[in-house]
């Protein structure tokens, strides 16, 4: 740095040229950013496009980018031929996400109040205890929870998932109650997305959307457009929520450490 500091500043009279060069560099890097953005968005775009193709057009090689659009995939998703309605799993996911978020709020607001507004003694220890539960791998608790749920007759019951999702999100909610609007969103997304617990602990009645999604993959026949339609439809609430509050995402995901 000292070597740099001694360099004389000769640029004073020719301010025009560096500015133009900088503008050109900015445009160039902007173009690169656009390319990267498109590459990352491509799979999503392909998913949406394929979901609007007929099964015959979806399964071709080379791909038919300009095949006629149809809503057949979505009709299938809504059970046109199989009669399997996506609404129960979707409603289950919504129930689990919304109810667990509300329960999180009900528990976290008083806790955050006790920790932040009128701090109890050793409040940071409590705060870090909350956080540390989030870092323990959920899979290690799966078995006892399964056994307990079996004993209590709670298997395949969506309210079991509500309780579990609440416990998964409570630490984050307590941790960053200051801006809890963002938290509401993240809890919803995490609950909506969860597969492992839902797969083991629910079956037909309480089945959530991610579990339902895996059932679209069949060993016989074509299913690509259906899967893409289902994947798109199930991701839509999360995409909508996430796009609506991009700025809050980081804060929620980094447990409030990044503002």
């Amino acid at each position: 740095m000292t070597a740099v500091a001694t360099t004389p500043t000769t640029a004073a009279p020719a301010t025009n040229r560096p500015n133009r060069a900088r503008r050109r560099a900015n445009a160039l890097w902007g173009l690169v950013a656009w390319l990267v953005g498109i590459v990352f968005f491509l799979p999503v775009a392909w998913m949406v496009l394929t979901s609007l193709h007929s099964e015959a057009d979806a399964g071709t090689n080379p791909p038919k980018f300009t095949a006629p659009l149809t809503l057949d995939g979505y009709r299938e998703f809504f059970g046109a031929t199989t009669g399997a309605s996506p609404w129960p799993p979707l409603i289950n996911s919504a129930t689990a996400s919304i109810a667990s978020t509300l329960l999180v709020l009900a528990l976290a607001i008083p806790a955050a109040y006790a920790l932040a507004i009128k701090p109890v003694r050793k409040w940071t220890d409590v705060l870090f205890f909350f956080l540390s539960t989030k870092m323990l791998p959920a899979v290690a608790a799966l078995l006892p929870i399964y056994l307990i749920a079996q004993k209590l007759g709670l298997l395949d019951n969506i309210w079991l998932m509500v309780i579990l999702y609440t416990s998964m999100n409570l630490p984050i909610a307590v941790w960053m109650m200051h801006s809890f609007l963002a938290e509401v969103l993240i809890c919803f997304i995490f609950s909506w997305n969860e597969l492992l617990f839902a797969r083991v602990l629910t079956a037909t009645v309480a089945q959530t959307a991610p579990v339902f999604l895996t059932s679209f993959v069949t060993s016989q026949g074509l299913f690509l457009a259906k899967v893409c339609a289902a994947a798109t439809a199930i991701s839509l609430p999360v995409l909508a929520a996430g796009f609506a509050a991009q700025d809050k995402l980081v804060q929620g995901l980094s447990l409030g450490a990044v503002k």
Binding site: F40, T232, A241, G242
Partner: peptide
């Protein structure tokens, strides 16, 4: 967008 697609999807 990739982060917002449901992981299973």
């Amino acid at each position: 967008a990739p982060f917002l697609v449901v992981p299973v999807a």
